[in-house]
């Protein structure tokens, strides 16, 4: 059985879709079977970032409504053959996502893939709650600024109460992915520092993705940043994050901060 990950944030524009694509591609490059699922019905983007927008025939809503089989709707990536996409519908109403339908699709994907990564829409409405409902692991994407941090805090509360795991009394594994981090601006006080964010959210840190033009460039050519340029700073940060997801323990480096000889050996950990 595969693991179901939800990439969520509450706030929009913090990098959920970018992170879903980048982590999916990073995991798949190790040979794991990965499917990325877009839950943003009506405002889909994951197909663009994956460069598959012209190949979408059937989508998640079609599958839920029984108009297409799951195998017909899965789009295989042309660059990494273990990476698949299940697109969202752009035209349908999001009310077409039913809890029972979503459960069926997730169960089917779980049995066929190692990782099912659900790209949650922004907000705390139906789409977002359905995306997180069946997750085993949550990646909370946060920018180092106050509104994003508070929204993430809200989402963590929902993860602890509205998900299937929470309702069964189990703990939901939660990770913080800090994106668009600019060390210079954090130093000047324009942004929250890493420790401030960790102090407020108190969940373990999965990685810090630096603010970079490479991310935008990659989206524009329709490739996850981990596929477009594996050597770029954000790509390397995503690769590290993917390894941590698989259980490896790696020290976390803060992009732009000079690494002292001893300073970062043990990395940092939050509650």
């Amino acid at each position: 059985m595969g693991k179901v990950i939800v990439v969520t944030s509450g706030k929009g524009g913090v990098g959920k879709t970018t992170s879903t694509a980048a982590l999916g591609a990073a995991l798949a490059q190790n040979g794991d079977k990965v499917v990325v699922v877009d839950f943003d019905v009506g405002l889909r983007n994951l197909d663009l970032v994956m460069g598959a927008e012209r190949r979408v025939v059937y989508d998640l809503v079609n599958v839920i409504q029984g108009e297409a089989k799951l195998t017909q709707a899965l789009i295989r990536d042309k660059r990494v053959e273990t990476l698949y996409l299940l697109a969202a519908s752009q035209t349908r109403d999001k009310d077409n996502l039913t809890p029972e339908g979503v459960e069926k699709v997730i169960e089917a994907l779980k049995s066929a893939f190692d990782w099912v990564i659900c790209d949650s829409p922004a907000g705390i409405e139906r789409g977002a709650t359905l995306a997180m409902r069946h997750a085993d692991v949550a990646i909370v994407v946060t920018n180092p600024e106050v509104s994003s941090v508070r929204d993430s805090d809200r989402i963590i509360g929902l993860l602890d109460s509205k998900t299937l795991r929470a309702e069964n009394g189990e703990q939901m594994e939660k990770h913080l992915l800090l994106t668009r981090y600019d060390a210079a601006r954090a130093e000047r006080g324009d942004m929250l520092k890493v420790d401030d964010v960790l102090d407020i959210l108190s969940i373990p840190l999965l990685g810090i993705i630096p603010e970079s033009m490479d991310v935008l460039r990659a989206s524009n050519v329709g490739a996850p940043v981990t596929l477009a340029d594996g050597r770029s700073a954000p790509a390397m940060a995503y690769f590290d994050a993917a390894r941590r997801l698989k259980g490896e323990i790696l020290p976390i480096t803060i992009p732009g901060e000079k690494q002292s000889l001893f300073g970062r050996i043990f990395g940092r950990k939050a509650a």
């Binding site: 805090d153 809200r154 509360g157 602890d160 407020i200």
Partner: peptide, 26 residues
């Protein structure tokens, strides 16, 4: 557990002890 933004804990009868933090908006 930490009390997250948007959450509300109500205990009408006695004392309340929170081991973690109470977030902004909680």
């Amino acid at each position: 557990q930490p009390v997250r933004s948007g959450q509300s804990f109500f205990h009408p009868d006695g004392d309340m002890t929170i081991v973690g933090s109470v977030a902004s908006g909680a």
